[in-house]
């Protein structure tokens, strides 16, 4: 008789392992479909059965604008630290992508850097979702230049339009204003998936999405930062937080919309003076979800702490009126 060598033993083991893998994968496939059904029941069931005052449980799904993400992510972090039974996921699909998921019923809260569009409201309604709008913070869209640029302090809306409108042939600073030096103009900005892009093009060029196309578009505002920081004749735009985080690398300029030059700041944005680029940021709640105690608690948590959260994320806090309105809207949910 032949005594098996270690090698043969190993081979045998590996064959058993392979057989086990085949089994495991089939079992896994079955389990996959099963656990998914359970999950659907669970997310509806446990949430509704939680009584007030009891430990909150459940999961909250948020998705949408990358501009709003830092705010909600901060809130989610602190909220989960206080409520260990609740899981909050904050996705970043962009404002449009967020609304698509929202109106598909896939998420509880959509984040947006512009108001919901008519088209999107209709898509939601067809699925019986009536979006509840809440303003979570204010932002000042900032136009930035290179720190070495010492000739521009302020641009008028008209000049910005001349630079950014579709078909614009402005390629040199001396075309913007004859008193400016002969310096090639390099443009940086967000790509078309961004709510910031939608807002800027609408306010400056008069039509959402209308822009010259020969600029450097990016979905990552840090690319705009390094682009502007690296070229003396560069110009770009993004949310206020990127300007505040990159002081010294880029320089913000004031905007003149007819009432003199106004620079973006907490005060000018809150007072509405920073026109037309001051903007509110939104979240949209799904009514069905808003009735769930953990979702309601999360929304309340945000507005109770909005001052600290907006400041930490370098946004502009809500005005008293905005906050009062949000509280009122939230109170309505409670009473239902």
């Amino acid at each position: 008789m032949k005594v098996p060598t270690t090698g043969e033993c190993l081979l045998k083991k590996i064959r058993y392992l392979l057989a086990a893998l085949v089994f495991a994968s089939t079992a896994g496939l079955v389990a996959c479909s099963k656990s998914d059904n359970n999950a659907n029941v669970a997310s509806g069931g446990t949430a509704n059965s939680a009584s007030p005052g009891a430990k909150l449980t459940g999961s909250i799904r948020v998705d949408g604008s990358s501009t709003v993400t830092p705010l909600i992510a901060l809130a989610a972090e602190d909220f989960q630290a206080k409520n260990s039974g609740v899981t909050v996921t904050v996705g970043t699909s962009g404002t449009g992508g967020g609304f698509e998921k929202f109106c598909n019923g896939e998420i509880d809260i959509a984040m947006a850097s512009r108001p919901i569009k008519e088209k999107e409201v209709d898509a939601c309604k067809s699925k019986n979702i009536e979006p509840l709008e809440l303003i979570v913070a204010n932002d000042g869209l900032s136009v930035v230049i290179n720190p070495q640029n010492d000739w521009v302090k302020c641009l008028t809306v008209k000049q910005l339009k001349a630079i950014w409108e579709p078909g614009s042939t402005v390629n040199n600073w001396n075309q913007v204003d004859p008193s400016f030096p002969d310096q090639p103009l390099k443009l940086f900005g967000p790509g078309s998936d961004s709510g910031t892009f939608d807002y800027f093009t609408k306010e400056i060029n008069g039509e959402e999405g209308a822009t010259r196309t020969d600029y450097n578009p990016t979905e990552d505002d840090n690319v705009t930062v390094s682009g502007v920081a690296g070229d003396k004749g560069a110009l770009g735009y993004f949310g206020l937080s990127y300007l505040l985080e990159n002081q010294g690398k880029v320089k913000g300029i004031a905007i003149d919309s007819g009432n003199g030059c106004i620079a973006p700041s907490t005060e000018t944005v809150q007072s509405g003076q920073y026109k037309p680029l001051g903007r509110p940021l939104f979240i949209y709640l799904k009514p069905e979800s808003a009735h769930r105690p953990e979702v309601k608690a999360f929304a309340e948590f945000y507005f109770d702490n909005q001052d600290a959260i907006t400041k930490e994320a370098r946004f502009v806090p809500l005005t008293k009126e905005q906050l009062a309105k949000a509280d009122e809207e939230l109170a309505k949910i409670k009473s239902q």
Binding site: C32, N38, V90, T92
Partner: peptide, 13 residues
């Protein structure tokens, strides 16, 4: 996605 928890099952974020 910003998630501060580990997956607990196949249906986890």
């Amino acid at each position: 996605t910003f998630v501060t928890f580990n997956p607990t099952g196949l249906d986890s974020g």
